[in-house]
Structure formats: structure tokens, C-alpha cells
Computed example of a mutant assay.
Amino acid sequence: MTTCIKFKQDNIKYVDCNNCSMQPICLPLKAGKTEVSIMDSYLSKRNIVNISTPLFQAGEAADAMYAVCSGSFKLTETSPNNQEKVIGFRFPGELIGEDAIHTQNYNYNAIAVGTTSVCKVDLTELNECGKLMPELQLSLISLLSKQNSMLREEFSSVVAKHTADSLLAAFILNMLKRNALYQESDTKLHLPIGRDVIANHLGFRRETLSRIFSKFQNKGLLSIHAKDIELLDLEGLKNIAYN
């Protein structure tokens, strides 16, 4: 279950609002001579989601979309024989459930990896606000366009890779770019997701993933300490990913 909280907790690192995908509809808007903060009024609620808890599940009626404030989510589908497939991830500043605006049902399971927090936007209330304030509709278009661009980059980072090495290299570079603003580093990356989850997403065996990570370390491309990765040779990793 999600639990509503009003204030940030001191021991959790949150994404800055300026780096959040939800920003286009969080900024104050003009209504005549009055400046209205839609999000401060009643649209946004910060919620804590406990580890391994679904934020929502595939097939459920979509009543809200979310922005990740802290932590991360894995997005999964369940096969007819009840096998879980990891189809993506969401990190601080990114949206979850925005595609359900069209389908009206959630298209995947969003499961918390560790303790996470999200900002929630009620879709019915957002629609009502949009009728009163056309500027909000334009802001929503901007928000969805930005998210779509991120998803295209996520897809292109793994499509048409011919080797396991190039697939993992592209995955690491994509994770680095998506987390750069949040983690404030162009070369260091903290991945809260475990190797089993990464292997599932990339279609590897866990042993294959560990072998390639070791190969990259031996080549001096990166160093790994638990779930922290530091890139030592960015150009070398790019050559593996894209050549």
C-alpha cells in the first residue's frame, strides 16, 4: 500500500523539482490576473511505496499518473505461464503510468525497488483543470513529449545490439544519462536494481551478466563496488555499445 506523506524525510534523497518530468504542470499558471499553482492546490500528493510493493498492476483502471521522487521502480509484464519479464525501469524525475491516459488501464506492473516515493496526479482532476485552464493542456503536451523522448532513447539504447557486450554497455550508458542530474555525476552511477533484475531485462543469464561486468573491469572500462559503478573509460564503453 502507499502511504501519503506531506513532507520530505531527511534520510531519503529526492530529485530536485527542476529536474523532474512533472515540472511542466507543476509550474504556476496565469488565470486572468491571478497566478494559480495547480499542484500546490490539490493535484499532487507525495506517497511512500514500500519495497516490492506494486504502485499499480497491469489491467487496473488508471486513475492517476506518477512522478518518481526518490528510489526506483521496475516495470514488469507477466506471461501466461506466470513468468515475470522486466520491460523497463523508472528513476527519480521520470513518469510512470502516463501511457494509461490513452488506454485508461495500466499496461504493466510498476513495482518498487527499495523504499520509494512518488508524486501523484489524479487524471480526472487534471482533466477538469485543463478545461478551465488551456495553458495546462499545453503544459501536459510538453510533459508527455519529454517522456516520449526519454522512452525512445531507452528503446534505441538496446535495439539492434548484436552482442551481449554491446547490449550491456548501451544499458549502462543509458542508465548513466538518465541518472546524471539526480546523482550529480557524469561518470558515477548507483544502480539500486539487482543483477538478477538487470539480467532479466536484458535477456541474459545472471552468470553471463557477471562475466561481462568482470570483462569490463579487467579492460579498465569501469570499476564496481557493490551497486556503485564508476566509468573509467567512457569512450571505450561507447565504442563497444555503438560500433
Rank of each mutant, 00 (worst) to 15 (best):
L176D: 04
L136Q: 03
I111R: 03
Y182T: 13
Q183H: 11
E125K: 08
E153Y: 14
D122S: 04
N179E: 10
A169F: 00
K120R: 15
H190W: 08
K177H: 15
S149N: 11
L143M: 15
L151F: 04
Q183T: 07
K188P: 02
D186N: 08
M175P: 06
E153V: 06
E135T: 10
S166W: 04
L144G: 03
M150A: 12
E154I: 11
S145H: 13
C129V: 08
L136N: 05
L140E: 01
Y182F: 14
K146L: 10
F171N: 06
Q183C: 11
S185D: 12
S185H: 13
F155K: 15
S142F: 02
T187R: 03
T187D: 14
T115L: 03
V158F: 07
P134F: 05
N179H: 06
L167W: 00
V113N: 15
C129D: 09
Y182I: 06
F171W: 07
L151I: 14
L176A: 02
A180T: 10
K120D: 13
F171S: 03
T163I: 01
C119F: 12
V158D: 05
R178P: 02
S157Y: 07
T124A: 12
K177E: 15
L189D: 06
D165R: 11
S157W: 05
S157P: 01
S166V: 08
E153H: 10
E135V: 04
A170W: 01
E128I: 09
L189S: 02
T116P: 02
Q183N: 15
E125T: 04
L132V: 07
S145F: 09
F155M: 05
L136F: 01
L136D: 08
V113H: 02
S142M: 06
T124G: 09
V158N: 08
V158P: 00
T163A: 02
T187E: 11
H190M: 09
T115W: 01
N148A: 08
T163E: 03
N174M: 12
D186M: 05
E135M: 09
G130Y: 00
L144K: 11
I141V: 12
L136G: 04
N148P: 00
I172K: 08
S139H: 04
R152F: 11
A164P: 00
K188G: 11
L151H: 10
L151V: 07
T115G: 02
E184I: 00
L140H: 00
L151N: 12
S117C: 02
V158M: 09
L126T: 00
K161T: 01
D186K: 02
V158Q: 11
S142L: 10
A170E: 08
L181G: 06
Y182Q: 06
A164V: 00
A160Q: 12
M150Y: 11
S156I: 10
H162N: 09
S149Y: 05
A160Y: 07
D122A: 06
N179F: 04
H190V: 13
